[in-house]
């Protein structure tokens, strides 16, 4: 196990931020700590890094108990959401900082910095200062700086939140491939469920200082343990008192189902079509159709349909949650 923590509890000014949190992160895995703001996920990351003291609990990294070790002895790479560039140092000096601290000889240091700059594709910007770089370039600089000390674990706090949508998507897949190439154990904090599901081997979903569920993204999506997880990971709707993902529902002839619904609204979003329906009793549901499905059934406001479910959300525990998925 690369990172483990148990019983981690933390209060700020009498408010419980983390309540008895425990988890194990496997070697080489990318874990996403996912939750809404205020769920305690960034605090947990800082506790693992040794930047915030915990009230009780234990943290161990690569088999060493580091609960009482200062950040500088933990050998972790940490990237803040704002990338925290050393503003008075050039990009090259930023990346070299950790190596200087470790007293790596000058020639060797320069070689390693050049190699890191190549890795993050910033070799042409080596002598620029942080304020001359774009957001994406700063993020890659922060990554190179963190990787320079060859950390056991990489911790990323909302690494893509400050970037615009297009750069975010590009960097996300780039970071994922870099992580796999280096095989470095990584914990990433995010509030974006799409990002977490796209990039992570494993999700840990936090809410109000507790872990709601942990497991592989696809499993958690289909088998949410709680209502919170179900609604946080994707849209849900209810039909006859049972929760469903709207894309698991389909429109059928009104005589083919037990109950008839009237179409109240049809919203076309390009890649999907949302159909909002209501039954005689006034309870609403909605169905998410692909473009093709919408063409076939062609729902219009006022029309009547039956609604059928292909599969429903079933809570369960993920047997493969702690072992690495082989299908990646």
């Amino acid at each position: 196990m690369a990172v483990s923590y148990s019983g981690v509890t933390k209060s700020f000014r009498g408010r419980l931020v983390l309540d008895d949190i425990s988890d194990v992160v496997n070697e080489g895995e990318l874990t996403a700590l996912l939750g809404p703001s205020g769920s305690g996920k960034s605090t947990l990351l800082k506790i693992i890094a040794g930047l915030t003291p915990l009230d009780s609990g234990r943290v161990s990294l690569a088999g060493r108990d580091v609960t009482n070790a200062p950040a500088r002895d933990r050998h972790i790479g940490f990237c803040f959401q704002d990338y925290a560039p050393f503003r008075h140092l050039s990009l090259r000096e930023n990346v070299a900082y950790g190596l200087k601290v470790q007293r790596v000889p000058r020639a060797q240091r320069q070689e390693q910095v050049n190699e890191l700059l190549r890795l993050v594709r910033l070799e042409d910007y080596a002598d620029q200062y942080p304020h001359q770089l774009s957001g994406g370039q700063r993020q890659r600089m922060a990554l190179a700086r963190a990787l320079a000390i060859k950390p056991d674990v990489l911790l990323l706090d909302e690494p893509f939140a400050a970037l615009d949508a297009q750069v975010r998507g590009e960097l996300r897949s780039w970071v994922r491939s870099l992580q796999q190439e280096l095989g470095i154990t990584t914990i990433l904090v995010t509030h974006d469920q799409v990002e977490a599901m796209e990039i992570a081997d494993r999700l840990v979903i936090l809410n109000e200082g507790r872990i709601e569920q942990a497991g592989r993204p696809a499993f958690v999506y289909d088998h949410p343990a709680t209502d919170f997880v179900a609604s946080f990971l994707g849209p849900i709707t209810s039909l006859g008192g049972i929760s469903y993902r709207p894309h698991e529902l389909e429109l059928v002839n009104e005589n083919a189902a037990a109950e008839a619904f009237t179409v109240k609204e049809v919203v076309r979003l390009g890649f999907e079509v949302r159909v909002v329906l209501e039954n005689v009793g006034g309870s609403a549901t909605w169905v998410q159709l692909t473009h093709e499905q919408a063409k076939q059934t062609n729902p219009k406001v006022g029309q009547r349909f039956g609604v059928r479910a292909r599969s429903q959300l079933v809570a369960g525990s993920d047997a493969g949650a702690t072992s690495r998925e082989t299908t990646h």
Binding site: F80, A84, R87, G98, A146, I149
Partner: peptide, 28 residues
Amino acid sequence: EIGDHQEQTAATLGAKPTRIFFTITLRS
């Protein structure tokens, strides 16, 4: 305005408090 993220980052890179003060805080 600057905050303490630069200092905290320097700490994760292995720097001791005095080094952080002279190489990061004072320079900023």
